[in-house]
């Protein structure tokens, strides 16, 4: 992994021709890594997720967008086994995952991060990273008592962790407690930690939220880099500039449903998406969320202008 990844400043190379047939919500993909059917989840009377059919293309960057409360995080929770759906089935890389506990999902190569960062505060940054590695012999309680059986592996893991940390510009922090990191650095750490397990699919829940613009660029580069390394990325994001910049495919959720899909430019021009962001009753409901939605709307329209 000698990715002296030259920051890909210019326009990233987009993957195209991911779908089969006419573009519509739930369209089939040429090579899907996730296929989900009839996934629903309700909280009391509220239907948080109601996805009839969706496919996530392999070795591409897919953005999952939608207004606040659309059900994006809930869908993530369901796909990764952190929450149980009311109905539905989904397949990851040919394996049915419904009912599989979250840790097994992760071991299969589908690793996620959280919207609210979960740095392990009182572990050093390096320990945070090492925890991410798969198949560690020393994690067995009895082997743990026999250090010579796992020391060599531990050294490999450490070398890999340091390399990843330096790619994410966190190597100087390796020995500090994760608690001492800034919010943006934690996002980086969480992503780097997820990569320790060499996943096939990385699911990032708002990786850019709260990250300053200077760091944003490097985060974007990292995400693009994952694709060149053969991984698939599914990420949730509210910043439309960013989505347009790196996503190969965009899936739009609103009120739990998939309302639109397609390559970024096409999706952003889609009236259904603008509708979703403004809500169908936008003339009745005013307030803070409305303002946010207006901002999102402006971004959408800007995006239109630029393209």
């Amino acid at each position: 992994m000698s990715s002296e990844a030259k920051p890909t400043r210019g326009a990233p190379v987009k993957s195209t021709n991911l779908h089969i047939g006419e573009i519509k919500p739930g369209v089939a993909k040429v090579d899907p890594i996730i296929v989900a059917d009839n996934v629903t989840r309700t909280f009391g009377g509220l239907t948080a997720v109601d996805v009839e059919h969706v496919e996530v293309p392999r070795n591409a960057i897919t953005a999952l967008i939608g207004p606040n409360g659309a059900g994006k995080t809930t869908l993530f929770n369901l796909l990764t086994g952190f929450d149980k759906p009311d109905t539905g089935s989904w397949v990851f890389d040919g394996t049915a995952l419904a009912g599989i506990p979250s840790f097994k999902v992760s071991r299969m190569g589908q690793v996620r991060t959280f919207q609210l960062t979960k740095a392990l505060n009182l572990l050093s940054v390096l320990d945070n990273m090492k925890l991410g590695a798969k198949g560690q012999k020393g994690e067995n309680m009895f082997r743990a008592l026999l250090p010579w059986t796992w020391r060599a592996q531990e050294e490999q893991i450490e070398a890999k962790a340091i390399e990843l940390l330096s790619r994410f510009k966190l190597d100087t922090k390796a020995e500090d407690y994760a608690a001492s990191l800034s919010g943006g650095q934690r996002k980086l750490l969480e992503m780097a930690r997820a990569l320790m397990s060499d996943p096939q699919l990385v699911m990032l829940d708002e990786p850019m939220a709260g990250v300053n613009p200077a760091l944003t660029q490097s985060l974007l580069d990292h995400i693009l880099d994952l694709k060149t390394q053969g991984m698939t990325v599914l990420f949730v994001e509210h910043d439309m500039q960013m989505v347009r910049h790196i996503a190969d495919w965009v899936i739009v959720m609103a009120e739990g449903k998939i309302v639109a899909e397609g390559p970024p430019e096409a999706v952003m021009a889609n009236p259904a998406v603008i509708d979703a962001y403004l809500g169908s009753h936008h003339d009745q409901d005013l307030g803070a969320t409305e303002e946010e939605n207006v901002v999102a709307m402006k971004e959408l329209l800007d995006a239109d202008d630029e393209s």
Partner: peptide
Amino acid sequence: SPWGRVIKGIREDEDAVRALG
């Protein structure tokens, strides 16, 4: 040992440790 690392990780945030397999 690595076992202890997992244990301490659980103390900090078990969902995060779960997400790491």
